[in-house]
Design a protein around this nucleic acid. Structure first.
Lengths: 354, 354
DNA sequence: TTGAAAGCGCTACCAG
DNA sequence: CTGGTAGCGCTTTCAA
């Protein structure tokens, strides 16, 4: 005898609860809970066990996460903020890896937020806090105010981890040395004898967490070089900041301004901007690398397809497994003070454009 | 007087509940609930209201979503599956837009899953169902079995929407005509007098939901052309399927095989593959478009930066607002039969490569 | 205008 | 080995 009605019949669908399973199996709700979580305390007989499993299958029972986390006091939810970044294959693989490992460790990973979804960090954090996540990871261009971090922790979040971006008081910090990319590019160009280096800085504000450190890295490379060679201020290499829209027109304008800028090298923020620069310069008759050396970053496929092939700086994004383990450690020891972990080695891939 | 202990003190952080707020404000929990949701029934006096708000602020109270949805019977959660696709700027903007509008409509949108995170659709769906989402959107290369859809609906999901990909029994279908891209490319090439068209099909299996329909679209364009011109089978244009890895080596091999293939046009799946093809052919001395016309798709910036500039097919991704409204409608009328909505007009952008 | 209390689905304690 | 039951935090009806 069926007592429930089909959803398509227009009546409220009767989502089965553990009580329904218990009734069908002829046991108590407690027993159902024991079987479904095969919990250590209260061992259940093999026959009962079978009956419960069978009943659950027949009803298509799915436990209710809200009820469970309400009772358990922890949700097992890990909120990953959605980085404000184009998802290249590298990042996609990393995120998938991270998710997989968190799953293995018993967490439910969820991407939340993303480009310009909430206006202020405060209201975003409040929305996160409502879900009572066990851990929150944010970074790659997203910042949380210290107040937001505090709100999360006060509402039970065991671990808040800043990832890649800035340090935030109260949060763990999985630090990626964002200046390494620029330093690697600068050092390489100096070794090749270039002394007048333009650095492309995208005008897109959402990229500034990457672009500014990359510029700073080049400046640092030049400063070290100047020091080690004991050069005078006048004899030191030059670094020119070039703000650039990601449009063909902006590229053409840069090409027109080039003589006045008097550069012999450009570090183009990343491979996509490098391609824009290359196309613009080549249209204007500038030879790469003879007149101007060009270096990109992120080692995208398109760099290998450009002619000349593009020299690029690759950043190692460490395995998602490592971050997952780290998060788990932080969660276990929620009271420990914030920890800083360093990652992200930059490495130059020399091809034909420099 | 502070009665709470700091999280950093090593004691369990006392997450404030609505009862705490009530106590501090000197009212009942019911009143707190009324004020915080400014619910119509049970109007509260202005003075009490102030007191409650003040108390909530002082305690840093954040409501518990699990408790709320348990009581309310609906979570307001919209699960967006994370498409198995590189997030270009177009898709990123669309997703952000969708999220924004869902937020406006009172939903909490969350990205869930993604590349190869769960093995089978079944276990993924079970994990989703545990969260008792109000709606689930999936698509762009991800499929859910009819059984999974059924499980979701039986566990209270009001609307399951397949987005872009295949139709799934029981789910609404926001259909994007994936063949339109290929048809547009094929028609354009035929108009330009090309009769021997190679179609690149990526070997990457995760792309087949895009690549196969794009190939089919070209074939359809040729079939229409043949019919309208009343051509004999022997005189009809030719379509050659070319499976291709996304590697430089595969590109070089294609270039070597080109004379044997005897093509005068290539539709390259998308702009990235088009760039690979262009670089390979040009290295081999093939002229574009004189010897071989080349068409990409997705209208990426890189197509405008290539030389010759790349002809590309652009797909209109309609506004996220439209999808959001649609989802809301589906949720309101959860019992209505599955609906199909058509979207995604393809449009050729002619540049210099064809 | 406000308060008391029931109950959403689940787990974990304690009895039997 | 199994069942009764309290209670997680919240909303909402009913009574005062």
């Amino acid at each position: 005898m069926k007592t429930h009605t089909r959803a398509s019949a227009g009546l409220a669908a009767p989502t089965p609860t553990s009580a329904d399973v218990a009734r069908l199996a002829g046991v108590s709700r407690a027993t159902v809970s024991y079987v479904l979580n095969d919990s250590a305390s209260g061992r259940v007989g093999e026959r009962t066990r079978e009956k419960v499993l069978e009943a659950a299958r027949e009803l298509g029972y799915v436990p209710n996460a809200a009820a469970r986390s309400l009772r358990a006091g922890r949700s097992g939810l890990v909120l990953l903020d959605n980085p404000n970044v184009v998802w290249g294959p590298l990042l996609a693989e990393f995120m998938a890896d991270l998710r997989r490992h968190l799953l293995r460790l018993g967490y439910t990973a969820v991407l939340y937020g993303g480009t310009a979804a909430d206006q202020d960090s405060e209201s975003a954090a409040r929305r996160w806090a409502e879900l009572r996540p066990t851990a929150v990871l944010f970074g790659l261009g997203v910042v949380l105010t210290p107040e937001s971090v505090d709100m999360l922790k006060r509402s039970g979040t065991q671990a808040v981890v800043s990832w890649g971006g800035d340090q935030v008081p109260g949060a763990h910090w999985w630090r990626a040395d964002m200046t390494g990319v620029g330093r690697e590019a600068g050092t390489h160009l100096l070794e090749r004898g270039r002394r007048r280096i333009g650095v492309i800085v995208p005008t897109d504000r959402t990229l500034e967490y990457f672009s500014e450190p990359r510029l700073a890295g080049v400046q640092d490379a030049v400063a070290r070089f100047t020091r080690s060679k004991r050069l005078t201020k006048a004899g030191a290499p030059r670094v020119v900041r070039i703000d650039l829209d990601y449009t063909e027109q902006a590229g053409a304008e840069l090409a027109a301004r080039l003589p006045e800028l008097d550069l012999d090298a450009i570090f183009a923020y990343n491979d996509e901007y490098a391609m824009l620069v290359a196309a613009s310069l080549q249209d204007a008759g500038v030879r790469i690398p003879e007149d101007v050396a060009l270096v990109g970053a992120d080692d995208l496929m398109l760099g290998r397809l450009m002619r000349p092939r593009l020299t690029s700086v690759r950043t190692e994004l460490p395995s998602g497994g490592v971050l997952a383990e780290l998060v788990d450690r932080f969660v276990q020891a929620a009271d420990a003070p914030p920890v800083t972990v360093d990652v992200g080695q930059a490495q130059i891939i020399v091809r034909d454009s420099s």
